[in-house]
Design a protein around this nucleic acid. Structure first.
Lengths: 217, 217
DNA sequence: GTTCAAATTATCGTATACAAAAATAAGATG
DNA sequence: CATCTTATTTTTGTATACGATAATTTGAAC
């Protein structure tokens, strides 16, 4: 983690958008942000540029920056793409994974199991990230891996809530097993299909998700 | 197009990376870039941040920015993802396209035909972009559309060369017809498959492409 | 001659200053 | 009283200045 002022501002604003403190359409005033984060306008501007780059804000020339919090529709759209990317990762991993990578994948998923056993959803969350990271690395396409990681990160704060939904963790784990099985068997089609579902089931549970978001707003 | 100094620097560097003037690993020195583009370091730094954001440069803290020109492997990876996204666009478009959008798609492709008839590859290129833009808009997922557009833009300078490869334009047009047919018939699977091929055939012709790139370097 | 340490230099990251453009307010005219 | 014009103010975009940290060079000791 960087100690740069710019990254702190970026992550700070990102967090506030995710939690709903900063609402959609709200103006991101450079001066007041600089005041709030106790830095000058320079790092604030850098942070805003990065926000625009990652799609969390829009910039109108000579008018300023505005929060672009993802709408319900936006999130459905992102999940639709996410499931496709995740599916592609699994498909490619089924063809390209090494035996060491399979071992690591299994070990990571055992971490998920122990996390569930201890009822620690934060721990499960971390192992779950690792699990998918294993697949990204095994897909043999670092560009795809990076894109998928990025999108996952963008849906991250919402997914974290998602995993806490009752009964989701064991189900998620079952899906993991199916994914591992398909990848190990080199069954690309099944790996793709199951991974797609794994993401989309979360997408279909949007009502649960929305209630959480509404609470935050 | 913006008149900002920062965007001019960004596009300038982007172009120089695409053409190979700026080689992989080369240092992007803020001072000399500012000198070269006749601006101060501030807009140069903004441009570098955007370059890093779009993956064309890497930044090592307190060490500076370095060109990250896509390698042969990188481009294969990007094509692999591109074909998937393009396929998904077509798949969704087959389910969601409106009759007006179909008409526009056909008209645009007629533009492609006349461009070929007149042997104008630049004109064909523009109509080809429009053709795919029609599909992006018809897919009903603006996030997916944006991501696909972005990746297409990144492969753009290479694709432009690609289309000039002998015999590629008529073949590309044939594929367009197949795509239109599948989308109009609402045949999502075929639309997906054909679109995937449409991109991948270009990817498979990498030897032709590479010779062009080598000439530039 | 080699190696390690201190001083120097260069460059990055941030702060501040300034200029240009747009939004807002004020005033004049009908 | 409404509206258009003009002045003020705010804010963006760029330039410059400064401090901190890493790279480089110089010099001394072995």
């Amino acid at each position: 983690m960087s100690h740069r002022a710019a990254t702190k501002v970026f992550q700070g604003i990102e967090e506030e958008i995710a939690t709903g403190q900063l609402k959609d359409g709200e103006k991101l005033d450079e001066a007041s942000l600089a005041e709030r984060f106790q830095v000058s306008r320079t790092p604030v501007r850098e942070a805003l540029l990065q926000l625009v780059g990652s799609g969390l804000a829009t910039q109108i020339p000579k008018r300023g920056c505005f929060v672009k919090a993802p709408s319900f529709r936006d999130m459905i759209e992102m999940f639709e793409v996410m499931s496709e990317l995740e599916g592609l990762c699994a498909r490619l991993a089924a063809r390209r994974i090494s035996s060491q990578q399979i071992d690591r994948l299994k070990r990571t998923n055992q971490g998920c199991e122990t996390a569930i056993a201890s009822g620690d959803s934060d721990l499960y969350y971390d192992f779950n990230v690792d699990f998918h990271e294993c697949i990204y690395e095994a897909c043999g396409n670092s560009f795809l891996a990076q894109e998928t990681r990025q999108l996952r990160r963008r849906l991250q704060s919402f997914r974290r809530l998602q995993l806490r939904v009752r009964g989701r963790m064991p189900q998620s784990l079952e899906e993991h097993h199916a994914i591992i099985e398909a990848i190990e068997a080199g069954d690309a089609d099944t790996a793709d299909e199951v991974s797609r579902q794994h993401v989309m089931i979360q997408g279909e549970r949007f009502n649960d998700l929305l209630s959480h978001i509404d609470q935050m707003r």
